[in-house]
Structures are given as C-alpha cells and as structure tokens.
Design a protein around this nucleic acid. Sequence first.
DNA 1: AATGAATGAGGTTTCATTCAT
DNA 2: CATGAATGAAACCTCATTCAT
Lengths: 221, 221, 221, 221
Amino acid sequence: MQASDKQERHDAILDAAERLLLRSPDRVANVAEVADEAGLAKGTVYLYFPSKEELLLAVHERSTDGFFREVISLCERQPRVELDAMIDLTRRHLVEPPLFLPLAARCFGSMAHSISPGNALAFKLRMAARLERAGAGLERHFPTLAPGGGVALLRRSYALIVGLWQMSAGAGGAVNCAMAGPDVSPVFAWSYPVEVEAALRALWQGMVGVPPRPGAPGGQR
Amino acid sequence: MQASDKQERHDAILDAAERLLLRSPDRVANVAEVADEAGLAKGTVYLYFPSKEELLLAVHERSTDGFFREVISLCERQPRVELDAMIDLTRRHLVEPPLFLPLAARCFGSMAHSISPGNALAFKLRMAARLERAGAGLERHFPTLAPGGGVALLRRSYALIVGLWQMSAGAGGAVNCAMAGPDVSPVFAWSYPVEVEAALRALWQGMVGVPPRPGAPGGQR
Amino acid sequence: MQASDKQERHDAILDAAERLLLRSPDRVANVAEVADEAGLAKGTVYLYFPSKEELLLAVHERSTDGFFREVISLCERQPRVELDAMIDLTRRHLVEPPLFLPLAARCFGSMAHSISPGNALAFKLRMAARLERAGAGLERHFPTLAPGGGVALLRRSYALIVGLWQMSAGAGGAVNCAMAGPDVSPVFAWSYPVEVEAALRALWQGMVGVPPRPGAPGGQR
Amino acid sequence: MQASDKQERHDAILDAAERLLLRSPDRVANVAEVADEAGLAKGTVYLYFPSKEELLLAVHERSTDGFFREVISLCERQPRVELDAMIDLTRRHLVEPPLFLPLAARCFGSMAHSISPGNALAFKLRMAARLERAGAGLERHFPTLAPGGGVALLRRSYALIVGLWQMSAGAGGAVNCAMAGPDVSPVFAWSYPVEVEAALRALWQGMVGVPPRPGAPGGQR
DNA sequence: AATGAATGAGGTTTCATTCAT
DNA sequence: CATGAATGAAACCTCATTCAT
C-alpha cells in the first residue's frame, strides 16, 4: 500500500472523528461510530491509531496545527504584524470553528491514560517546535517582548482561550438552558467571542504594551 | 432528622469526596468509594446529592467559595489592596491546594450532563453573587478598571489559572513521565506556579496598569 | 441480606455456570450467558465473583470438593478400605460426571491470569487441607505407603485421570468425529472409562502393592 | 516452487512458533507475531497451515516425534533396555525442554475446534504408528507386559507427565507467586522434575514389576 | 432515614481469517 | 506465491443509579 494511501485513510478517520465531534459537541462518539462514519470497520481504526485517546489527540493536534502554521506564516512573511491580525487569526482558527474548543477541553481535562509515553513525548516535541517558531516570530514583530516572551504570550493566550471557553460551556453551560427566563445578572451577560477578544487584548496589552482599541469592554478605563 | 444533622452528613460526604480526590488526583473516585470513605452506604449519598456530578460540583463550589470569601473580605476590610496581595491569595487558595485545579478541570471539561437546570441556575446565581461582590470590591481598589472590569478581571484570572494548569497537567502531563531523558526543549521548562504568577501579573498589568515586579519572567522587556 | 441468601446466590451462579458447561462442553459460556442462565444481570455476577476465571475456578473447586469429602469420609469412617472402593468412588465423582474433566482441563490449561494472588493462595490452601487429610487417611488404610505417600498417590491418580482424559478428548478428540469409517488402529481402541480404571489400578499396584484384578487389560501378564 | 523450498518454509514457520512459545511460555503468540518472527507476512502462514490451531498441533507433533523416535531407536537397537534409560530419555525429551509441556497443555486443553477431520485423522494415524512401534519395542524388552501393555504404558506415562505438569503450572502455578511468604504446607513442597520421576517409577513398577530404586520418595515403604 | 443488592447499558480492544493486489 | 490491509465478532468489566427492605 502506498504511503499516500495510508495517509489518506489516516486522514479519513480523523475527518470522520471530526465530523462526529462537530455533529454532537456534548458527547464523544465511540470508536464504532467513528469507524462507521469513515465507512470502515472498527478494527481498521485500530490499524491507524493505537487507542481511542490517541485518535482524539491526533484530531486535536491537527486542529491546533492549522493555527500555529498560520501564526508562523504571518510572522515570517508579513513585514508588519498587528495585534488585530493576531486576534483575527485566533478567532478564525480557535474560536469560530466549533471543533477546537470542546476538543481541547476534553483532551486536556481527562485524557492521557492510554497514550504511550513515546507518543506523548513525540506529540509534545512537535508542539514545542511549533510554539518555539511561532514564539520567535512574535518576538521579532513585538520587540517589547522579553526573550522567551513570545512563547509565553502564546501559552497564556491559549490558556485564556480554553479557560474562558470552559467557563462558558462547561458546568456553566448547562445553565444557559435555564436562562430563558428573567435576566439573571449582568455578571452572566457575556458572550464568549466578545469576551475572549477583550481578554486577549488585555493580556497582550500587559505583555507587549499594545494599547487596546478604544471602547473595548472590560479593559482599562 | 434535624436540619443540622442533615447539613453535617452533607458536609461529611463532601469531605470524603475531597479526601479521595486529593488522595489520587488523576482519577475520580466512584460513588461507592465516596460512600465508603464517608462511612455511609452508597444509596445514602443519593439522599444528599441527586447525582454524582452534582456532588462534584458541590465540592468544587465549596473550594471556590473560600477564595471568593477572602477576596471579598480583603476588598471590603482593607484600606488598600495591592496586586501582590491578590497574587498571594490566589496562590494560597487556588494554586497550592492540590484539590482545586484538577477538580475545576473535570467540572468544566466534561460535566453538566446530569445537573438539573434548577440546580445549575442556583449554582450560577451563587457564583454570580460572589463574583459581583468581589468584582465591585476590586473596582474600588483599582480605579483604573472600567465598570464591570472587576468581574472581568476575576473571570479572566480564573480562566488563566485553569487553562494553564490544564496545559501543564492534562495531555501534556503524560509526557512528564517520558521526560526523564535529555532536556527536551526550553519551551517545556516552565513550572506551573511560577508561570501562573507571571501570567496573572501580565493580565493585571494589561487591565489595571499595575507595573510588574521587575525581573518577573516572560513579561515585557 | 442474610449470609445464607448470599451463599444461595453464590451457589445459584455456580449452578448456572455448571449447567452451561455441561450443556456445551466444548466451549466456555461468556459471563452474560451465565448471568442469564442464573436469571441475573451481568453485573450481579461480578458482585459475587471478581472475574470470570475466579468463577470457573470456584466451579472446579466445588466439583473437586465432593470427591475429596468422600475420600476422607471413606477413610475416616470405614474400618477397611479396598482399592475397588477407591476406584468406584473415582468413577462416580470424577469420571462419570461430565462436568469435572473438561473443566479441570480448562482450569489447569489456560487459566490463572486474572486470579488474584490472595485468592489463588486461599484456593491452594483449601486444596492442601483436603489433600493432606485424605492422604493421611489413605496411609492408615494402606500401610505399605511410605510417609507422604498418601498425598502422592492422590496427586498421581489425579494427574492420570486428567492426563488420560485430555488425550482422549483434546486434540485427539477431534478425531473421534472422523473415526466413523474404517477401524483405524487397535491403538485407538480404548475407551476412557475402562482405560482410566486400568491405569489407576496399575498406579496403585505400583504404590501400594495391591494386586490387580485378574484379567484387567493392559496390566502385567 | 520446489517441494523442498515448501518444506523449508513450513519448518521455518514451526521454528518461529517454537521460539515464541519458548520466549514467553505463559501466553500464545498471535499469528502476526509468528509470521513476523519467521520473516513472512501474516497471509503466508495460511498458505502453509490452514489454521492457527493446526500450526500449534504441528509444533506439538514435531516436539513429540523426537521422543518417540528415540524410544523406538532405543528399543530396536539396544540389546537391553532398563527403566532408568527410559526415565532418562523422558527427562531429556519431555520434562526438560521447556517447550513440550506448556504446549501439550494448550493443545489438549482448549484445542480442536478448527482442525479439519481429515487432518485430525492423519495426525492420529501418525501418532498411532509411532505408539505402536514404540509399544511393541517395549513389550519385547519388558516381557512381563501383557499384549498391548507397551502402548498402554506409554499412554499412561504420557498422561502422568502432562497431568502432573498441569497441576504444578496451571491454576496452581499462579500461587507460586504468592508463596513467597511462610512455607504453606508440605503438601506443596514438591518439585515437578522429582515428582514426575517418582510417579513414573511407581507406574512402571505397577505395570512391569521393575523394583523402584531404593530411597525414591513417595513410593512403597 | 438508611441500606446495599441488583441492574444493564456502554465502551475498548484483540485477533484469526480472508482476499484483492 | 506472497502480501498485509481490512474485517467484525466476541468478550470482559465498570459503575451510576434505583428501589425493596
């Protein structure tokens, strides 16, 4: 079998898993469903992924990869990078695609039992390479960043994105069903997309000193 | 049965769940274990909590409550509140107690299936009350905060704390076992407690304009 | 729940497993079938036995126990024990009941993976107690036995019984289906019940000097 | 393809299976491993053996064959055959090689599902031929044996060897791990090699009247 | 109020065998 | 002849929840 065919199947399985994750975001399909969706037998999935968890990790990695690739591309090809471009990129890759956030929560929340140390290491190394390159790129464009600050900025942004999402969708999310009634409290009157942008601006403001857009909610007076 | 007895049992179950969570942070005890640890029968747990998830949510809420109470107390009793005091408080309540973070990850990551809308709403209302009061307190002490900025600041801090923890402990955590070998990359050379403090300082810097302590890692040059 | 009720259920599960083993001797029922046969749910079986293997071991032990109890009773109550009585007892307990032999083969052949060391030890201790008592009884009745010879005699008899059965039923057994045709060879013209009796007589003859019944096949001229 | 090449491949597969069986005696390698060890593809194994069970049976037969060949050779070439020579031969072929016994247990315990009647018959015929020839040889050297006694003697010896091994290694074997503690009981204080020799001597004593070596354990007083 | 026995759905993984290339 | 990708049945075990006592 061609290496390319193999890759194709591999990707087809990832695609199937992705589709299912998107179709019902509040549960994780079992392997049988993934196989079915891919038009394959259950056993076949295990020819390509050693366990269900590694499959999910691969979906997650692929969806993260797109984001990092574009950060890197942006930093390495554009003469100037503005905060707005980064925010936009984040929105397009992480916030809007309905796949990324639920999956990140799952991956980071309750995984990593049946992932072999070797694969876990490999995963982390690939992540590290992307982070480093993207971080270095950021440092070139935002000279106020201390050395290592690019990576830290990305890490913290990522944490903010995932953390906020969990607050809006996790245990809190259940509430949204219950909120049909009276307006409960202004404290809950926040929408994730708006809030995440404001939060990122605040974080970046703190780290690179870029002034926030005037009128952005929740920032400095 | 006396209301006080009821409360006592209720708390005893929470205590038991907490002890088990602390004892083995990488798994969630089943209901039988919790009951056992509390010296009760399995069925009895269900007299006090309608489901396992609600039990976990209660543990989580209780452990969060302590933090908020102290923030509120700090803001309402002290004449002046410094960033350092807040950081310290965060460390003592959220970072160092080994209970909070794993639980938050679980609660927010994969919960909210069998939590009744009514209870979810009640939970969120209690949270809202605490948040609002603490947020208002912060706004008094940090006048550069825009209206609503206190709540936003707390929310974002919380997201940062939880998000960073997941990055260090979740899917990445499995790797740490595999990292015995050569030092892989400086990208992974970060410790959660140090990083979370730096990240919070950066966020606060961006939101209230408090200058970071000189020499803090990863901030501005 | 009464201890006696518990024991009853325990036994009911053993009974069900036994029935299934008898009904189709050439396969091992899965746990769902056992539960079904016992009129219980799958999970209930696991309340009484920690694993399928331990369940099978318990069936085996129970069926062995009857044999030993009668050996002991025979030796301790009768004034005189003859070889013929022992042979008869063996036939009634081990050879004729269609349960014992297939199960022994299975238990000894491919088991002992998920049997906890503690239970394995307990099992062996119970076996040891029975063996010792029965062996001591035999030594009183057959004074030509050397010390320890009673246990050795039982062990070897047991090995012979099981070993011969496997030769007739195991890989060889498949053949019996194919033997409908021409008489293959006098070498295979042996029936297990006849052969096992002759073999036991020979072994006992060698160990206690009891002369074989005249005319028995396969012994001395 | 040359017939000789075919035979070579056939044997190479048997060799591979044997190596794996020896390498980890407490599990049975799957077909993929066998193929791998033989440097072939999985499908290729099925060109040479119709099923996994037939492959194992072939390994077993080959390892039994050596024993019979030497019994026959001994009986047909030597002027005199002593019991000691037979015991020695048994030890060298069946007891000491770590392949034979586990395999025999497996073959006889849980096999014979996917062995075709034709092959089963052929197998048994080959066995019969060997047995008859070896049995006849024994009868010449041990004239006290009744007609047919040679075959019976071999069969019973075989049963004893396999049966005793299973008692020491099967369900009981699991215990040996648990026996590190106090010496449980003299009943378990037996080693397979010693016991099997004593048992064979006792059996032969009963069948051919050869006196046991003085001082042998467990025999007559 | 308390118990804890019973439930049974639910999910992961293995592997002998086949068959198109 | 050889391959090895695909298959899919089969089986074990866990555990949140219920309910009769």
